[in-house]
Design a protein around this nucleic acid. Sequence first.
DNA 1: CTGTTGGCATTCCGCCGACAA
DNA 2: TTGTCGGCGGAATGCCAACAG
Lengths: 615, 615
Amino acid sequence: MKSPETGAGGTAATSTATNGEGAEKKSINPELWQACAGPLVNLPAAGTHVVYFPQGHSEQSFSFSFRSQFMFLLESKITVFRFAASMKKDVDAQIPNYPNLPSKLLCLLHNVTLHADPETDEVYAQMTLQPVSSFDKDALLRSDLALKSNKPQTEFFCKTLTASDTSTHGGFSVPRRAAEKIFPPLNFSMQPPAQELVARDLHDNVWTFRHIYRGQPKRHLLTTGWSLFVSGKRLFAGDSVLFIRDEKQQLLLGIRRANRQPTNLSSSVLSSDSMHIGILAAAAHAAANNSPFTVFYNPRASPSEFVIPLAKYYKAVYSNQISLGMRFRMMFETEESGTRRYMGTITGISDLDPVRWKNSQWRNLQVGWDESTAGERRNRVSIWEIEPVTAPFFICPPPFFRSKRPRQPGMPDDDSSDLDSLFKRTMPWLGDEFCMKDPQALPGLSLVQWMNMQQNPSLANSMQPNYMQSLSGSVLQNLPGADLSRQLGLSSPQMPQPNNVQFNAQRLPQQAQQLDQLPKLQSSLIPLGSIMQPQQQMGDITQQSRQNLMAQTLPTSQVQAQLLQPQTLAQTNNILQQQPSNTKSIRVLLKPSSNSCKHQQQESTSNLLWIDRNR
Amino acid sequence: MKSPETGAGGTAATSTATNGEGAEKKSINPELWQACAGPLVNLPAAGTHVVYFPQGHSEQSFSFSFRSQFMFLLESKITVFRFAASMKKDVDAQIPNYPNLPSKLLCLLHNVTLHADPETDEVYAQMTLQPVSSFDKDALLRSDLALKSNKPQTEFFCKTLTASDTSTHGGFSVPRRAAEKIFPPLNFSMQPPAQELVARDLHDNVWTFRHIYRGQPKRHLLTTGWSLFVSGKRLFAGDSVLFIRDEKQQLLLGIRRANRQPTNLSSSVLSSDSMHIGILAAAAHAAANNSPFTVFYNPRASPSEFVIPLAKYYKAVYSNQISLGMRFRMMFETEESGTRRYMGTITGISDLDPVRWKNSQWRNLQVGWDESTAGERRNRVSIWEIEPVTAPFFICPPPFFRSKRPRQPGMPDDDSSDLDSLFKRTMPWLGDEFCMKDPQALPGLSLVQWMNMQQNPSLANSMQPNYMQSLSGSVLQNLPGADLSRQLGLSSPQMPQPNNVQFNAQRLPQQAQQLDQLPKLQSSLIPLGSIMQPQQQMGDITQQSRQNLMAQTLPTSQVQAQLLQPQTLAQTNNILQQQPSNTKSIRVLLKPSSNSCKHQQQESTSNLLWIDRNR
DNA sequence: CTGTTGGCATTCCGCCGACAA
DNA sequence: TTGTCGGCGGAATGCCAACAG
């Protein structure tokens, strides 16, 4: 081959040259992975807690069927038939039920590794999950913290390839904005201005392009080297290419395919039955033994995420009062990899699969969309995917907006703030006694156990006395303990284990099953929710059993959380990153909202905590 | 695209043209499929009984790891790492045991469909299996009949592509013999002689080639159209191409890839844990409910077949006395898609996986090979894969060898033969009373039930009297019923169902578990086996528990089966095919060996029944 | 501002016999 | 008998500006 150092040509044989380090595991660049995955994908952080939905996981392998059915309208028909046949079989219910597998599993996410298919560059993530029986406030906090700190959003551009871009006749026409934002500046004294661009893909293969600014009118073009890339990646018109510039000012490039080819899947190896059974059986086995298991998440193949950060799930369950007819917004990805919110209305609340997954929260909301783009958007979503339109909190601008100058490093903030106050403000129902002096020593408490105690106070005798004291102080008297168990359809609650369960993964298998009742139990709390929507009109919430609980509200003065828009948050993060990191530890604090509440922001929708560093 | 009618270029978009019939399911040409699968692959026929080994099925997905590890020596290293990592995990035993899943399942094979991956042309078969509790003699017969009638072995040639064949510089050099055998004859009055060849691939895509006979010295070449095929199929030097001529004198062509690329698998969708669990759980679920399930068999990816025709398994278990140090032959595929036998010695008999699959017959023989080609051949095989060298029967040439002329159609053979005698001769222990007058009305009998009765004769009272009569006649008195149950490690045998179980798939789930004991029970029979090796030296057969039983022999005069070599069988089939099919039904008969036993054939190794049509 | 097209140089594809092996 | 090579003609690739939307 006479081609220059542009590694990784069309054939697989040439790709070894650039994988110079041999058998060493190449770590995928996370920013590039994120860019390829799309703006809506937000992986949970390793070490945090998540809620895993086997139903959604199982759907992921189904989605290939959906994709092929979509392809039916476009292209090959053989594959469609093949997958359609396998779908029909599944309807015949060859897949056994796993009665011991709850519809959701609380898990500790041990590990997340990013991957990309060596042939197709398809991005996917491997997650090692371990079912746990409970979580504590620290887990919730860390999940929430990771939820927001995960958005550097590097500079990038994404262009859908045109016929001209992919034809052998010419090169790639670079949008002017994109070239100026991402590419190194050209030396315009040259005639014509040109340079050599070097970019690496997900596999660290190097691609070189000639970047030239020419033509009448002038435009940015990639010429030499471009066709090798197109043929090497087997790109066609409609596929997208994206360039990003990482923090070391190096160019990275990735691709996103438009034509959802079914990736030939494992159809020659595994029946779709076995595939679904495998997913469910692996989860059931892990749930029964509290043993770790592995999950692959393919962001562009899955219709929805099925491993939800605990905090995201938690907030959705507690904050959003779901009702029929409720208006909401939801993010969608646009062309060119942007995001856009669409408005919709909840038209129904029902199980997606009433037989197999009864009372699951997985996509249990039927929705209609304001802009009817002919069923383009999904008509079933999960609660954590939507943002209620009715602003839940009093919205106050963050302190940054009060003074334009960045905060001085090392200067303590005048707002009183520490972890204790955070807990008190985010979970005011916990009461003052339940403060956190030492996060490491904080005894964890299973919410399951806790709720069980509320339903059966006699069990509390087995608890350590200080627990009961703190709990009884604020919680028990604030909650209607009377007929909770009847409302929630609970049978005799099991005896909780009274000892510390913080991050203790070795639990009794039976407790894993209790977790299925966790969301139902939690939904009975609704302290934050009742605040957010005091005048909640009563929708007909089927199988939610919250009606009676809604009447109860906590005083508005207890509202402490602030609301930031995502843009604002991005600025916040920028500011934070500009601060010299001379702090010894990262501390989380909650700005009290009572200080500087100026005006309500109508656009705000999501319920976010504000996080800052403080030395 | 300006390319001629040669359909299916490199891009997926052009392939629609040749799939003219749209969504109709294209049925794969069985001969072409067989040629691509290789000469050793022999799929069981639909409607027959098979023995399914979940362990082997599970290994199939592992084999991709093996393939990548082989690639390690050749090519990319990233994939190796990925799969090596996933293997290690499996060693950590995240996969649950399925205590209710026996190591082998007797199944009725409902359906077999042939497939080929639309992208890679990889051939695979989809089989629908249904666990059954028992089989009868008719099932065994039909399995045996299908075993041998399945080898038309059409004319074909297979060539491994050279660098010149695959380079863009030239065309394809056709071996002289191959061209003369397969291609239509050239008109040598032309100068140069040339013609247009039209061949169809597995997907019925049409490829046209210019076939020319030119050069100095003269040779057969494929020129125009060849490079499109090479690039379209993404062939490289080392891959193989094969041409076959079907019965309608049409050319078909297929490919076989040499570089075992890991087919990127489903790694982006499914963890290997889930994959293995899925296979096992699907089988376990099917076994528990006697419900059908689907299995994919990839002949070129699997190290061994894991769906074994009942007759093949049966004969191997009954005919071959396996012992340490035993000599055997085994078929292997050569380059150019031929077959060759290698000699080997049994060096050990032990479970491949003593933990998960105890007492499984799946590759429980450790073997060494005479020609040590450095571990090229597997060191573990299953009993049905080998052919004992010590000729088990008296070998007699079939009647065809007595007279060279083919048998006259419609002329009844002078040998007395019918289904009754077949049964008597293949299963002499059944006794004369157990004859078959009407195959349809023949009551089925589970071997499990039968063996249970032998161990616990009191149960026989529940059986219909004529059964017991026939059984007691020859069998019961020939078997050492004394401490069988202790030897075989059987606990209290369950009550067998006394009614007819012929092809009755709806059985009690518990009976499926009994099947696991079937081979162990069967191995205690050894009536044929004791004949074949009367002077069997006693090897240390671990966990086989046959030692005491071996001493017992049946009279040699009862040996009735004939032995044909595969080549002989092919000739037989040819002859049979030449016979006009004016017969109303196919009947199976067994040539008695006592008539014309001339000389022993030393090369004969396999134990085959002779099958003929008789009007 | 950018997608497509015609014009054109250059490269590469692909058919041929000449050599060996 | 068949794998590779130098040779050559022709087809394609790929760079350019000219349009047009």
